[in-house]
Write a protein that binds this DNA or RNA. Structure first.
Lengths: 168, 168
DNA sequence: GTAGCGTAGTTGAGCGCTTGACTATTCCGC
DNA sequence: GCGGAATAGTCAAGCGCTCAACTACGCTAC
């Protein structure tokens, strides 16, 4: 959780020139609060969604991305990128969604290497059933807890980090 | 990722009385930024730590928690709680750390049911080697990107959410 | 003391993810 | 057009997590 080996460990290993830039007490608190809360929130939302609908959050995201596209279909690679997923992971996930009849693969006319993932009507129906559960969780566990100023700060923070982490 | 089924889907399913409290555009942006950034940051830190040291972040946390205790040992249940881990998950993880020689189990004198997880010298050494890598990642990908005001906002946000999610 | 219940921790099956190797197709330069 | 590099996607092995069932011990009351 923390990044300090142990309080008062004295001398420490030194990877970057000048030694590790240890966190001070304030940074530790901020880091832990962020880490714990993000972990708990994600766990909670995923568990509630999965329990209520049988759809894990990662699969839900795939369905959402497909549903937001005009033709309800997308190239596998682009879908992977949008879901912050590796190609391999997405390939496995789409296989399982295919077994449920929610998505099907279609060969891509313009590129013989490519495939399209297509959201089926059953998949869209499953998404429609799951969405209210999920949005209610986000409300309850996130937005209901925050002031408008905190929501603004959250967005600012997230977008700042995204510029560094995902400069796409 | 998002919580809306599809823009302009019109009527939607209604689980809570009054219909789902959908997110408005601002909330969507905030939610997505938070979700993506936390996911990318966690993935990145975990990957860098694992590549450089062979220790996944979840295992690192176990070692840290043990190291911060005076005797470098802790009851399994308490360790699970502190690591935001289920008993089962922790049990599996400690088994693997035991195989590496970094932790060992010890019967608990006061409670015949209980076990203590004890950090070995090898485990402490592994932690000492990994800590600088991890702290450098947190610096680079988090604190170096943020102003002091943003750090304060992050802590405030995290602690607010924790009061709701983990009122322990 | 023993029945019944709660707590501590483990185990095994099954699922999902990661990694790295693999096939197939397209793109590029000559 | 043809050879080599890049791109799209898949697959298998191995690891870690979840869930539910299980063992073992302690606690309380009768």
């Amino acid at each position: 959780m923390t990044t300090q080996v142990s309080p008062g460990t004295g001398s420490a290993p030194e990877p970057p020139p000048g030694g590790p830039r240890w966190l001070d007490a304030e940074e530790q608190r901020a880091w832990r609060a962020w880490l714990y809360s993000s972990q708990l929130l994600n766990d909670r939302l995923d568990r509630e969604l999965t329990r209520a609908t049988g759809i894990p959050h990662a699969y839900y995201e795939i369905l959402v991305q497909l549903s937001e596209t005009p033709e309800r279909q997308m190239r596998m690679s682009e879908l992977a990128d949008r879901c912050l997923s590796s190609r391999s992971r997405l390939s496995h996930a789409v296989s399982r969604l295919e077994e449920r009849g929610w998505v099907r693969r279609q060969v891509c006319a313009e590129d013989g290497r490519g495939l399209l993932a297509v959201l089926t009507d059953e998949g869209f129906a499953a998404l429609e059933a799951a969405a209210p559960i999920h949005v209610e969780g986000v409300r309850t566990h996130l937005f209901d807890q925050l002031t408008p100023e905190q929501v603004a700060a959250m967005r600012d923070l997230g977008e700042t980090l995204l510029r560094h982490l995902d400069p796409s």
